[in-house]
Write a protein that binds this DNA or RNA. Structure first.
Lengths: 119, 119
DNA sequence: AGAATACGCAACCGACTGGTTGCATAATGC
DNA sequence: GCATTATGCAACCAGTCGGTTGCGTATTCT
């Protein structure tokens, strides 16, 4: 991305919570799964196969777009959506950092529970 | 975990959306960060340093508990919370799978946007 | 030009969320 | 025994969420 744009944005630090919140919905997870296949899909196409209204799907897509997980571009009368992986990379990194922090202090807590016979 | 329990549960397939939803809140992310340090914290301890009420913190902890991210045990009059990494591992794996699917079809989409001059 | 397609905007709705306050109860400390 | 500490439960509230319907508009097709 930053290789393409000459106006290289300084990769603004995004908060993780909104990204996780955007992923905290089955419908949006399904949209992400479909868009991650690499195709461009219009709103109507994404609505087909769903039991929801076009407007419902549109709202979900806007949520994903605000979280940066999806990009929208317009061709003619249709809005095409494309997957954007960066926020998911960052989210994954965050989960990794939390897991690593846990791993480092795991030994300290291991057996602690049984030792103290906690319920 | 499953090593301890003789009634080895078949590691029920958990949906990802609830885990992400539980992480989609700054307060809860802060709680996860603190608990991932490996210490056991009571509700009062977790409330100290926060501007929120004890009940607010309690509600957030219950959300994390239902998502499996946190475990609660009782000692005397206090409720001690411990971090549980499994759901986060699974969430990380899910993000990885989505990213990999994207990577595999990246070449197919690369240049597609510029080629078609989409706005 | 006229019909069909794809979409945006706005209002509306019930349900859920994040947060509070108030009160009751169990466990500890003195 | 009594005060303190730690918590649970329930009610309440404003705001957000997921979803719908209705309508207007731009684009494409024939």
């Amino acid at each position: 991305m930053s290789r393409r744009t000459p106006s290289a944005r300084p990769a603004r630090r995004r908060a993780h919570a909104p990204v996780f919140a955007a992923l905290g919905d089955r419908t949006r997870l399904a949209l992400v799964a479909k868009l991650s296949e690499g195709e461009l899909y219009s709103i109507s196409q994404l609505t087909q196969g769903s039991r929801l209204t076009r407007q419902a799907i549109t709202k979900h897509l806007r949520v994903l777009e605000h979280a940066g997980i999806v990009r929208c571009m317009h061709r003619g009368r249709e809005s095409l959506f494309a997957f954007n992986p960066e926020p998911l990379y960052e989210a994954k990194s965050y989960l990794e950092s939390v897991s690593e922090q846990w791993d480092q202090s795991l030994a300290r807590l291991r057996g602690f529970v049984e030792e103290r016979r906690l319920t």
